[in-house]
Design a protein around this nucleic acid. Structure first.
Length: 579
DNA sequence: TCTGTCTGCCCC
DNA sequence: ATTCTGC
DNA sequence: GCAGAATGGGCAGACAGA
């Protein structure tokens, strides 16, 4: 199959909004393809070359590709950037130009070329990569070039993703969605969509039905919903159980002790292989009384002197490729196991939480090493009980609690109310927001590009410096219409350059500066020390920033100088440290 | 060797 | 991570 | 409610260039 045929189909798909219509068209494409081609189509539709746990990394993205595109089209980088501000992305941009393609490349040709691109590394590699991309784009026609660029950027953004591919595979085979559940079950157990497509095309649905969990291949993780209060959660679940929510990273742990050399693998929430990053956990995992095992837990770093859990900013330093052994000494990890998915050749996905919990505890009986332990769990009957438990967890410096339905099975790949998280806000109450001042805005991508705004910069007033200092960028919380309105408002008070009384790192300079006068309510989960933001920044310490910031509304009754002050923000930060 | 910039289906 | 939107 | 697509702070890694 020619790459152009694929690109043309993508172009058609991009224009369709109806899910069923997209699915049918995709099904037709997959039917036409060979099984090798179908697998490749699955991967590149997701902006990947392989399943997530094998990884795809070009180390080349927008900034570098702007150079390639400007070079190719014979414009300056400034001219390209100017046009980029108006339209959605580089792919779209290049697709609007015209040239005569030199080659008529197949899907497999392009795939091989992308693999080549991935494998270039070392000194001068950026130059080499640029040359390879330029040649590839030149050889291709504009429509194909558009999608090749989007693949390298990691997102093709044509309104479908993995679950639509699963649907399309059903349509491809049966002409309806009757195989959806079987295919989804297989995909949830083996997160390699290209492999699913290949097996279905080669061996049929019978082979798909036989697929189960494989130790060493990640299962798509279940996720928790969020509710604002303890009461709402108990109302929703009735009698339930609660576990501490630790602020580290989620690990899916795979163990196979039946091999001559025991295997231990760790996968991230996004199914990345992190197996080499935690050599200090391997021995602890091998103490578990199992032959084969897949379980899930949360890993958190702690201070070896005090035993205190470290904040996420510290824990995340353990996600690294170099100096692993040294960091394991300075920042030891503990991992708290909260679920069991597979044990000694048997799946536990369809067992209830209670049954999985019992089985999980049984494998911890003889484990001495507290580097790995089963997470605590308490029974909850009332909202008050849950609130008390939540408060005691917050008191211990944890992120909150996760509440679970005791009779629920494990639903891989799904976010639902079987699990509900209750998290600490910056002070613990819903009404808790900061009043911040809009300092400027940024152009957006995709749909936001058509609004002319994708995010905005906010700050607070520091009376000691008589200046506005930045505390967050906001990219979520407004409706489409509200984004348009904010842009209009900003344009009416825009100014050509940074006002003298705004302190801002260069990396955060907005595309359009505005006079500091719009006051908005910002909610966040936490205040952190920031290497970039300037709020409360002094020679002695870093500034402050907001974790997970979002806008809740405006404070038109307030002037910019009446907004939250640096002093107040510092106070909130200090209070938060005290619990 | 040091520093700044860009990148990451990154982690959250 | 949070949030919004079309289906 | 699902699936998808917008967007956040901040870390280490990979290079380029001084």
């Amino acid at each position: 199959m020619k790459f152009l045929e694929l690109a043309k189909t993508f172009d058609e798909l991009e224009a369709i909004s109806g899910r069923t219509e997209i699915t049918k068209k995709l099904a037709h494409l997959l039917k036409t393809a060979s099984w090798q081609e179908a697998a490749i189509i699955c991967y590149i539709s997701l902006g990947e070359l392989r399943p997530p746990y094998e990884g795809t990394q070009f180390n080349l993205a927008e900034k570098s590709l702007i150079k390639v595109v400007s070079d190719l089209l014979g414009y300056t980088q400034e001219e390209i950037k100017k046009e980029l501000a108006k339209i959605s992305d580089l792919g779209q941009l290049i697709g609007n130009y015209n040239w005569h393609p030199k080659e008529d490349l197949s899907i497999i040709d392009v795939y091989k070329e992308l693999e080549t691109l991935e494998n270039i590394s070392g000194g001068k590699s950026q130059e080499e990569k640029a040359a390879v991309v330029k040649k590839l784009l030149k050889d291709l026609d504009p429509i194909s070039a558009k999608y090749v660029l989007r693949i390298i950027l990691g997102k093709i953004r044509i309104g479908f993703s993995d679950m639509t591919i699963i649907d399309a595979l059903s349509w491809m085979q049966e002409g309806d969605k009757s195989l959806r559940h079987k295919l989804e079950d297989a995909y949830n157990r083996c997160a390699d969509i290209g492999y699913i497509a290949k097996i279905l095309k080669k061996d049929g649905i019978e082979a798909i039905e036989k697929m189960g969990c494989i130790v060493g291949i990640p299962i798509r993780p279940a996720a928790a919903e969020r509710l604002p209060t303890a009461e709402a959660i108990v109302e929703k679940l009735g009698d339930c159980i609660a576990q501490p929510k630790l602020d580290g990273f989620r690990l899916q742990i795979h163990v196979d002790k039946t091999k001559s050399k025991p295997m231990v693998k760790f996968f991230s929430r996004n199914l990345k292989d992190m197996s080499d990053m935690f050599p200090d956990l391997v021995d602890a995992v091998l103490q578990l009384n199992v032959e084969t095992l897949i379980c899930e837990g949360e890993a958190v770093a702690y201070d070896p002197n005090t035993g205190q859990f470290e904040p996420f900013q510290i824990t995340v330093k353990r996600k690294r490729k170099h100096d692993i052994e040294e960091m394991a000494v300075d920042l030891p990890l503990k991992v708290f196991i909260f679920d069991l998915l597979y044990l000694n050749g048997r799946e536990y996905l369809a067992d209830t939480h209670e049954e999985r919990r019992t089985k999980l505890l049984s494998i911890f009986k003889s484990v001495k090493d507290d580097k790995i332990q089963a997470i605590d769990e308490v029974k909850i009957k009332t909202g008050q009980q849950l609130l008390d438990y939540f408060n005691s967890m917050i008191g211990q410096g944890l992120e909150g609690v996760v509440v679970k339905r005791p009779d629920a099975i494990y639903t891989p790949g799904k976010r639902n109310f079987n699990w509900i998280k209750l998290k600490r806000q910056e002070k613990g109450h819903l009404e808790d927001t900061l009043d911040c001042v809009v300092l400027g805005y940024y152009y957006g991508k995709g749909k936001r590009a058509s609004f002319g705004i994708g995010a905005f910069l906010v700050g607070i007033y520091n009376d000691r410096q008589d200046a506005f200092e930045t505390v967050a960028k906001i990219g979520t919380g407004l409706k489409d219409q509200e984004w348009k309105e904010l842009k209009k408002k900003c344009d009416s008070i825009s100014i050509g350059k940074r006002p003298h009384n705004v302190e801002c790192s260069k990396e955060l300079y907005p595309d359009v500066w505005v006079n500091p006068e719009i006051v908005c309510q910002i909610r966040a989960d936490e205040i952190t020390r920031s290497p970039l933001h300037t709020a409360d920044k002094t020679e002695k310490h870093l500034g402050l920033a907001l974790r997970f910031p979002r806008i809740m509304g405006y404070r038109s009754d307030k002037s910019a100088f009446d907004a939250t002050t640096a002093k107040e923000l510092t106070r909130l930060f200090e209070d938060q440290k005290k619990k």
